[in-house]
Simulated assay, not measured.
Amino acid sequence: MSAPYREPSPLPADPAPADEPVDIGPLRSSHAPQPDLTSTHRYVSLGLLAVSLGALWFFWNEERGLAAPFVAVALVAVVVAWARRPSRVDLHDRGLVVTRAGKSTTVAFDDVDEVWQELTVNDSSIIGRVAFLSALNLVERNGRRTRVPLDVAGALEIFERIDRACTYPLIADAEAAIDAGETLRFSDVSVTADAVTVGKRSIAWRELKLVRVQANQIALLKSQTVLPWATIAFDAVPHPGLFLRLVRRLAPEIEEDTGFRFGKTG
């Protein structure tokens, strides 16, 4: 597995043919969608209501052509409901299969170059800020991106399997690179043993008063502990688990203030 954080990513290779089989080993577990009455069912209900109103208009009014808008609304609702059908995730020994709207996508873990988190933040919780991890996006070396939903049964098993197979193998190489004085790049953030760079701004680790790990981000605090010098969102860097591990290793002082959940808000 490559280390995309050590050098600028090369130009993506030509994707493999769509019909080329991918060997990901035997099936380990299947993860069905969680019941969701607020998305797909909502559009189905809208479609049924539109059909009912259209039928009433057609049979009880002479201007039957005016029933057409109700039919159009029903068709749109059906199309949207079909497109928003929940996904299923099948975990295999060496990869996974995501099935959505009747289409299956196979990803081999060895082909994954980057792992990105998809987070939704809820600040209205009585326990403070909570981040919901709704999906992981897997970017392969050929540039293909696959969204792996986590609003399914057994989401923790999926998360841990991807982390173990795609991010964990990079840890030793990353720590060795830091010890050798290299610069590790995580999108717009760069890390060395001496400093961290966010965009075009850099600061030495020793100049930081505190690094606060929050539900959805890391806050770098320089001279006080209220207004951060910079914040780094976990969904703005690839392999956020690896990035956080390096920050914990390099920061002079860490404060943990996290609230983390799987699935959707609400």
Results as ranks from 00 to 15, higher is better:
residue 107 V to K: 00
residue 107 V to I: 08
residue 108 A to H: 05
residue 109 F to D: 04
residue 110 D to C: 03
residue 110 D to R: 07
residue 110 D to Y: 01
residue 110 D to I: 03
residue 111 D to Y: 05
residue 111 D to S: 07
residue 111 D to K: 04
residue 112 V to T: 00
residue 112 V to H: 00
residue 112 V to G: 04
residue 112 V to W: 00
residue 113 D to G: 10
residue 113 D to V: 05
residue 113 D to Y: 00
residue 113 D to Q: 14
residue 113 D to E: 15
residue 114 E to F: 00
residue 114 E to G: 02
residue 114 E to C: 07
residue 114 E to Q: 14
residue 115 V to W: 03
residue 115 V to Y: 03
residue 115 V to N: 00
residue 115 V to F: 00
residue 115 V to K: 01
residue 115 V to Q: 01
residue 116 W to G: 00
residue 116 W to K: 03
residue 116 W to R: 06
residue 116 W to L: 08
residue 116 W to C: 02
residue 117 Q to P: 00
residue 117 Q to K: 04
residue 117 Q to R: 09
residue 117 Q to N: 07
residue 117 Q to W: 10
residue 118 E to A: 08
residue 118 E to H: 10
residue 118 E to T: 12
residue 118 E to Q: 09
residue 118 E to V: 11
residue 119 L to D: 01
residue 119 L to P: 04
residue 119 L to M: 04
residue 119 L to N: 09
residue 119 L to C: 05
residue 119 L to Q: 03
residue 120 T to L: 09
residue 120 T to R: 12
residue 120 T to V: 15
residue 120 T to D: 06
residue 121 V to I: 13
residue 121 V to G: 06
residue 121 V to L: 10
residue 121 V to W: 07
residue 121 V to N: 01
residue 122 N to K: 10
residue 122 N to C: 12
residue 122 N to L: 14
residue 122 N to Y: 07
residue 123 D to R: 15
residue 123 D to V: 15
residue 124 S to A: 15
residue 124 S to L: 15
residue 125 S to W: 07
residue 125 S to Q: 13
residue 125 S to R: 14
residue 125 S to F: 12
residue 125 S to Y: 10
residue 125 S to G: 15
residue 126 I to N: 15
residue 126 I to S: 13
residue 126 I to R: 14
residue 127 I to E: 13
residue 127 I to C: 08
residue 127 I to L: 14
residue 127 I to F: 13
residue 128 G to F: 09
residue 128 G to S: 13
residue 128 G to R: 12
residue 128 G to E: 06
residue 128 G to D: 12
residue 129 R to H: 08
residue 129 R to T: 15
residue 129 R to A: 12
residue 129 R to L: 03
residue 130 V to K: 01
residue 130 V to G: 02
residue 130 V to Q: 02
residue 130 V to N: 02
residue 130 V to S: 05
residue 131 A to C: 07
residue 131 A to R: 02
residue 131 A to G: 09
residue 131 A to V: 08
residue 132 F to C: 08
residue 132 F to E: 07
residue 132 F to W: 11
residue 132 F to N: 11
residue 132 F to P: 05
residue 132 F to Y: 15
residue 132 F to L: 09
residue 133 L to T: 11
residue 133 L to I: 09
residue 134 S to A: 14
residue 134 S to F: 09
residue 134 S to L: 04
residue 134 S to H: 11
residue 134 S to T: 11
residue 135 A to P: 03
residue 135 A to Q: 03
residue 135 A to V: 11
residue 135 A to I: 11
residue 136 L to F: 06
residue 136 L to A: 09
residue 136 L to W: 05
residue 137 N to G: 06
residue 137 N to K: 13
residue 137 N to S: 12
residue 138 L to C: 06
residue 138 L to P: 10
residue 138 L to Y: 03
residue 138 L to F: 00
residue 138 L to T: 09
residue 139 V to L: 10
residue 139 V to P: 03
residue 139 V to R: 12
residue 139 V to W: 02
residue 139 V to E: 09
residue 140 E to T: 12
residue 140 E to V: 05
residue 140 E to R: 14
residue 140 E to P: 03
